[in-house]
Design a protein around this nucleic acid. Structure first.
Length: 342
DNA sequence: AACGATCGCAACCGCCAACTC
DNA sequence: CGAGTTGGCGGTTGCGATCGT
């Protein structure tokens, strides 16, 4: 911890492991548990900003015990934090695979496009942006695009135009962003090559054909998901935005015209479709269009938050760890109450 | 320089599905 | 089969930093 700028601010390592300036007094209060949301313990749990010491304890805990069983963290580490708080801290800021730094123009484009398609399904959008969290994307959207209230097509167009202007400006003087973009593209290309070589295409085709048949019945407006604007290798602005996506046109034998999109999500590939809150597995879509759900609150239309083997978040893992996504940890045995943890 | 407005984002809350007992 | 637990998700809040006047 040190004075980074001579401004009297301390640079402490916050959860996102970027260094954030904080006033010394604030830091002292934080560490005394008297900062922010609570003046100490609430229901026995500490709230408010995490201290470096708390982060260290949590990181050590996860190193030893792995993710999950969050409610046991406080007992095993002495942290006065609820399990939910520990999980959130880890997922959003302490996870080692998180990408640091600002959202790149390329990522911005993806966020904008995916939000236009999926709405506020931040976790779904986050799966298409390796190293980014749903919280980060949600905040980014709210601060950059929410004010435009892009609920109508014209409003969305305005928001997009505004975004593109920002993107152009950003590209003009942001070499770092360009480098990040380039690296990201290389990662995506590597992922694409690996996946193309390893995917059992016949099985994929069969599964997709079944998915598409369901979709044809349930989502007549499925045409919006056609391939035109998101084919891989496109050199257009739109195409570059979808550099992480590729389509399998007419992949289902005997089902011409059906289109699926594979989203390369870190080390895996998700089959996406409109109407599913998250990516498709082999399970049928069971609810109405999630886009139609109320804008606030948690309605009954809600996808599974678990990951059953063939659930809505089923994905292919090509087996390399270039940028392991958050779900990789889910490959461990079930985190639910293993004997000895209770 | 002072002050208010706005921005950015970490962290919280409530809800709900999956799961165990 | 119902109650309790756990964890995932979207929405909201609070506060320091920055900007504009």
């Amino acid at each position: 911890m040190q004075d980074a700028s001579g401004s009297g601010m301390l640079m402490i390592k916050t959860g996102d492991t970027r260094y954030r300036a904080m006033k010394p007094a604030a830091l002292l209060l934080m560490e005394a548990g008297q900062f922010g949301w609570s003046s100490g313990l609430d229901d026995g749990w500490r709230k408010g900003p995490w201290t470096p010491q708390e982060d260290k304890l949590l990181i050590e805990h996860v190193d030893i015990h792995g993710e999950g069983r969050w409610n046991s963290v406080s007992r095993l580490t002495g942290l006065k934090r609820s399990g939910k708080s520990c999980r959130l801290r880890w997922v959003n800021y302490l996870r080692p695979d998180l990408k640091r730094g600002k959202i790149t123009p390329h990522e911005e484009t993806i966020i904008l496009e995916l939000h236009a398609r999926w709405g506020n399904r931040w976790s779904t959008i986050a799966r298409s942006l390796p190293g980014r969290t749903d919280n980060e994307i949600k905040n980014y959207w709210r601060t950059h695009f929410k004010k435009a209230k892009p609920t109508k097509a014209s409003d969305r167009a305005q928001a997009r135009a505004r975004f593109l202007r920002q993107q152009q400006q950003g590209l003009q003087h942001n070499d770092d962003n360009q480098q990040q973009q380039h690296q990201h593209q290389l990662q995506l290309q590597e992922a694409e090559r690996a996946i193309k070589g390893m995917m059992p295409q016949a099985q994929v085709a069969a599964n997709i054909a079944q998915e598409m048949q369901e979709l044809a019945i349930m989502f007549p407006a499925f045409s919006m998901f056609q391939a035109a604007d998101c084919s891989a290798g496109s050199t257009s602005e739109e195409g570059s935005a979808w550099g992480s996506l590729w389509n399998l046109d007419d992949i289902g034998p005997g089902r011409p015209g059906l289109t699926a999109t594979f989203v390369i999500v870190g080390p895996r590939v998700e089959l996406t479709r409109p109407g599913s809150k998250s990516s498709a597995g082999s399970r049928p879509v069971t609810g109405p269009d999630p886009d139609a759900r109320p804008s606030s609150g948690s309605g009954p239309i809600r996808a599974s938050t678990r990951r059953p083997e063939l659930g809505p978040k089923a994905w292919f893992d090509p087996g390399f760890g270039a940028f392991p996504g958050p779900e990789r940890a889910q490959a461990r045995p079930s985190p639910i109450r293993t004997p000895g943890w209770a």
